[in-house]
Write a protein that binds this DNA or RNA. Structure first.
Lengths: 337, 337
DNA sequence: ATTATTTGCGAAACCGATTTCGTAATTTTA
DNA sequence: TAAAATTACGAAATCGGTTTCGCAAATAAT
């Protein structure tokens, strides 16, 4: 069923039917109701490709994330979806799997009118904004969330990574750690570096000397490799007595290693993790977390994106929002078990 | 940049350029290479809405799931995406939040040509296939995965729910449980009922009498309510000594309740959960699971959907695949702690 | 009563591709 | 060498809507 058939059945012109469905003031109420009735009888809805082509609007936004099987990102998608649903927008989800080349290809795909805007959390390999320039050239609004490019002017929704890094180190030190260490997920990600720098700043402030080595371990992004790294760390002679895991995945691996290697948390090792996992309380032992407002970050990112989509004279690129994370203390950092 | 501009720049007709980009045999190699060069110089890609309209193909599939913040579904999405990426397809993700009305609206949205096919895991409220008939009428291929409608002929990718339910009860009984109970997520979902029926069959086979009451608790889908239900169950006089959680979420709540109520797993209560959660080993205590092959289920569902999309004389609706789940024994069901 | 405005609708252009069909030039076949 | 077939391309129709513009009839203003 399309407009032409509907028009024929109603003995009206195509344009009249189209305008009636659009509730145009040009059409009389009587005609409108006749049209609406016929349309609903036939379950008519406009073909999205025809209408998208003519209106140059897709009612679709692209969401580019590294992974979907990750608490933070799936919660963020929920936040994004809650806004998109209200606006009658559709969500195209793309996974970069933390590879720059995938991300580049995806962005390319988003630049040809398929979507009205893009929400992105960049891959751990992304260091240049070259691929994103294309979006700007095509006037596709863009909002970063969580993982952004530092030197690229664009709308962003971030969390207070530096402060949280600082706070996590402070918390470990205050609970007796003398040799805390930071497990970084990527040296490319500003997000990760900010957390690490906050961590280092706290060590400095609290006079935890780190003359010889920088207490940061850069973990591989391959699961088996990072597991091995963490295993070696936990079994080495100078095992740290406190660890901050920069992302959830590393904390989970750390727990697994400690269980296998009979390292006792928090007695031998205290752990803080950046994580949104709702089961932190029922881990063994319960996990102290820096918890981001993932849903809220997704929600705000989507809200700002829609502002950018809907009003051309809204300076989207100036919008940088910081949504603070919270330290939630649990047993993995308690002084005594 | 569009075809018209490109054609003008090359002094060729629009149709020639279009055919050259399509590598048509009608066009000479010399012309093709000129066209390709100019196209790549300008980063030209065809407008998806124009091409979708004309070709009546969207290169997009719709994925309708209850939730994304759920291990099973996010892993399934990974499986789906792995296939879609190969085929150059895009993924529209829709969340029903386990509400029938949402699902109905979403399916409606998928029936007007927006997608070339649909993968669905139905909401916990869905009992009728009325909304899905629309898809069949419009010839939109459909594949269920995990949660399907029993009395509706369509392609499905399922797991062995009955056997797994049986196995979980058997496992509890063999480890000493005398009064096991099944926590059901929904009495509408065939998936859930199959698990429950398998559970009951084992009780029967092992002569666990349940004369008075059926050992199944139907939990609310509202988190606070189900928490309260589980709390009441664990604090009641006739607390069961074994529990099978039909979905992951209920197992997590059960763990929380037990921790708050000082019920010791596995001493006071043994627990098996249908769950894909990769952190089951590091829970307190580690959780015995019936683990579905979520990625694989998504992958196979997508593969079959594409067969249905690509060849019209492939009888998609006959395709019912069962991918078995595995019982992984851990401490939550061990006989002695 | 005449002119101006508003109302309600239809014809046709348009969005940007794909695809059918026609045709001149070239090559092959008889 | 004439007829047939092939090659390489362009004109135009088409997909299914939206939007601009024109116009007759009805209503309002002068």
């Amino acid at each position: 069923m399309n407009l032409k058939q509907l028009a024929k059945e109603l003995n009206l012109s195509i344009s009249t039917v189209s305008k009636a469905l659009d509730d145009s003031h040009e059409i009389s109420e009587k005609t409108k109701s006749k049209v609406l009735e016929a349309a609903s009888k036939h379950n008519y809805t406009p073909n999205p490709y025809a209408s998208g082509l003519r209106k140059k609007r897709s009612n679709t936004i692209g969401v580019i994330i590294p992974e979907v099987a990750d608490n933070f990102f799936s919660l963020a998608i929920n936040g994004i979806q809650s806004i998109a649903e209200n606006k009658g927008y559709h969500l195209l989800i793309y996974l970069s799997h933390d590879k720059y080349e995938n991300e580049r290809r995806i962005v390319e795909d988003c630049a040809n009118g398929r979507v009205d805007g893009v929400l992105i959390s960049i891959s751990a390999e992304t260091i240049s904004a070259e691929h994103l320039l294309r979006l700007q050239k095509e006037n596709v609004p863009l909002v970063f969330f969580d993982r952004a490019l530092d030197d690229f002017e664009a709308a962003k929704v971030l969390t207070n990574d530096f402060e949280s890094g600082y706070l996590s180190a402070k918390h470990l030190i205050e609970n007796g750690c003398k040799r805390p260490m930071f497990l970084s997920f990527s040296e490319c990600l500003t997000m990760c570096e900010n957390r690490a720098n906050g961590f280092l700043a706290a060590l400095d402030d609290f006079k935890i000397s780190s003359n010889e080595i920088v207490p940061i371990m850069y973990c591989s992004r391959k699961e088996e490799e990072s597991y091995k790294q963490i295993q070696d760390l936990c079994n080495s002679n100078d095992r740290p007595d406190g660890i901050v895991a920069s992302v959830e995945k590393l904390a989970m691996q750390l727990y697994l290693v400690c269980q296998d290697s009979a390292v006792s948390i928090p007695n031998d090792l205290k752990v803080v993790a950046f994580s949104t996992v709702e089961i932190a309380p029922i881990l063994n032992p319960s996990l102290t977390t820096i918890t981001q407002s993932a849903f809220e970050m997704g929600r705000v990112a989507a809200e700002n994106l829609f502002k950018g989509i809907e009003s051309k004279n809204f300076n989207l690129n100036q919008q940088v929002v910081v949504i603070p994370s919270k330290l939630i203390k649990r047993q993995s950092t308690s002084r005594y078990k």
